[in-house]
Amino acid sequence: MNHAFPHVNAPARSFTQLLSATRRGARLARLLTLKELRSWGAPEGLAERAELVVAELAANAVLHGSLPGRGFRLTLAFDPSDRRLRVDVTDSRGDRCPQTAPAGAGTGALPAGGRGLWLVAALADHWETIPHPPSGKTVRAVLSMPAAEE
């Protein structure tokens, strides 16, 4: 008797790297993101959006989330069958959480700081901050792959 096998989707891919909390570490996070996503066969549009999101989140980890002697961690999780990429950047400053823009703030009312998170919000489906005990936080962004990028 012949049985049809269920369609097996492509496996989820993941990457994690601890990086120094320096400008060089932030740049390396961006470059590693592109290298990994391209090696996984991710669509170019998704890889380009992810590059910008990682650049911003890594820069924030270096500028606002670092403590002397501690680095930050970049984690990428890509599931082609779910058509989603999750970007996590974990730093050591849980006491400094990024703030979303106040409700009703127009584009002409951009604050002096925090504009990069507007970019993250525009490129990602959503982003959030998750406590990372004992003293850190993870900023997570999820990017979907539109049907046109498949």
Rank of each mutant, 00 (worst) to 15 (best):
N2S: 14
H3P: 08
F5P: 10
F5R: 13
P6T: 07
H7P: 15
N9M: 09
N9G: 12
N9H: 10
A10K: 08
R13E: 12
S14E: 13
F15S: 00
F15R: 00
T16R: 08
Q17D: 11
S20N: 07
R23V: 12
R23P: 15
G25H: 02
G25T: 03
A26C: 04
A26P: 04
A26L: 06
R27W: 15
L28V: 06
L31V: 08
T33R: 05
E36N: 14
E36M: 14
L37I: 03
R38C: 09
P43Y: 04
E44P: 10
E44R: 13
G45H: 07
G45V: 05
A50V: 06
A50I: 05
E51A: 13
E51I: 12
E51H: 11
L52I: 11
A55F: 02
L57P: 01
H64V: 01
G65W: 00
S66R: 07
S66A: 07
G69E: 02
G71L: 03
L74H: 01
F78C: 03
D79H: 03
D79Q: 02
P80T: 10
P80E: 10
P80N: 05
S81R: 04
R83W: 03
R84I: 14
L85I: 06
R86P: 11
R86M: 12
R86D: 12
R86W: 15
V87A: 11
V87K: 08
D88Y: 04
T90D: 03
T90P: 01
T90I: 05
D91F: 04
S92Y: 11
R93G: 07
G94F: 02
G94Q: 04
C97A: 09
C97T: 10
P98L: 06
Q99D: 14
Q99T: 15
T100C: 09
T100L: 11
P102L: 07
A103L: 09
A103Y: 13
G104C: 10
G106V: 11
L110R: 06
P111R: 13
A112W: 02
G114T: 01
L117P: 00
L117K: 01
W118Q: 15
A121C: 06
A121Q: 05
L123G: 02
L123Q: 02
D125V: 10
H126F: 14
W127N: 06
K137H: 03
T138D: 04
T138M: 06
R140Q: 03
L143P: 00
L143N: 00
L143M: 02
S144G: 13
S144C: 13
A147T: 00
A148D: 13
E150I: 09
